[in-house]
Design a binder for these strands. Structure first.
Length: 266
DNA sequence: AATGGGACCTGCGCGC
DNA sequence: TGCGCGCAGGTCCCAT
């Protein structure tokens, strides 16, 4: 799923490829993904503007435009951005004045596109907790101290810490050797410390590999990200733990599939 | 206040 | 072979 590493991968690739390009057309084939404003106005606000910069906030991509507004993209679970586009599976196809185009694909239609005067006013963005890379060790320890919830759902709570989803929560907890069902405030300082380090390592490594292509995620080129080869637990139910050999287990936690090694993670 | 479940969607893999 | 069903998970919303 597109989590911080996948969205950051796309941000970097978009930065290299579409900054400076001018929108010449927007072909909306599935209006449902356009959340605001209505399709006709959405098009009008894009066409003729030039891409100035590409930002990322947690899992949200922000394409800053020459007219001061922004194209705000949340890929949710199956959203894709592909460049150069073919238009084949596109829900929305953006064309540029140089004749190339950018495809927005989304199998399950959960993703959300907006054009906003100020992306900072988006409620979801205002509710985001700090990103892992913006946190200090001490800050992270303090945040966990007052939380009695289970650590894995807490890591996925965007208002608590932003950018981590189901996959990287599982991988970070494995790396820190912490059971996903432990309560946050019950972790020892040493465990919290390991978790903080593990989160940053897992995210950094995943970005290096261009993200994890499970289900639909692809890089801007349409090619898969390579981090799946490094997954220790996610998607590995029944397979031997890379550390101890015990079969990886999958349980439901907070309604989500949760992979872990019950021998290594205590 | 925190937690759980359903809703939003589609396509895939499974069992019969 | 083909059909129906469960499941995947980011986020919101509602109920408890």
């Amino acid at each position: 799923m597109p989590e911080l590493p996948e969205v950051e991968t796309l941000r970097r690739e978009l930065e290299k490829t579409i900054v400076g390009k001018k929108f010449s057309g927007v072909d909306i084939k599935q209006a449902k993904v356009i959340r605001d404003p209505a399709p006709v106005e959405f098009k009008k606000r894009l066409i003729g503007t030039t891409v100035k910069d590409i930002l990322r906030k947690a899992k949200v991509l922000i394409v800053e435009l020459s007219n001061g507004s922004s194209l705000v993209v949340h890929l949710k679970m199956t959203g894709q951005l592909v460049y150069p586009g073919t238009g084949k599976n596109a829900r929305v196809s953006f064309s540029f004045t140089d004749g190339t185009s950018l495809d927005f694909n989304d199998q399950r239609l959960f993703a959300e596109l907006r054009v906003m005067k100020d992306w900072r006013t988006l409620t979801f963005i205002q509710g985001l907790g700090p990103e892992p890379f913006a946190l200090t060790r001490e800050g992270f320890l303090k945040m966990l101290a007052s939380k009695k919830t289970k650590i894995k759902p807490l890591l996925m709570d965007q208002a608590f810490i932003s950018g981590i989803g189901n996959l990287y929560a599982a991988e970070a907890l494995f790396k820190a050797r912490i059971s996903p069902a432990r309560s946050a405030h019950g972790l020892t300082d040493k465990e919290k410390d390991s978790l903080f380090t593990a989160i940053k390592e897992v995210l950094t490594d995943a970005i290096k590999e261009g993200g994890s292509s499970v289900d639909n995620y692809v890089r801007l080129s349409g090619k898969p990200g390579g981090y799946v080869a490094y997954h220790a637990v996610y998607g590995r139910e029944g397979k031997p733990c890379l550390s101890c050999g015990a079969p990886i287990r999958r349980i439901a936690l907070g309604g989500r599939g949760t992979y872990f090694c019950s021998r290594c993670q205590k």
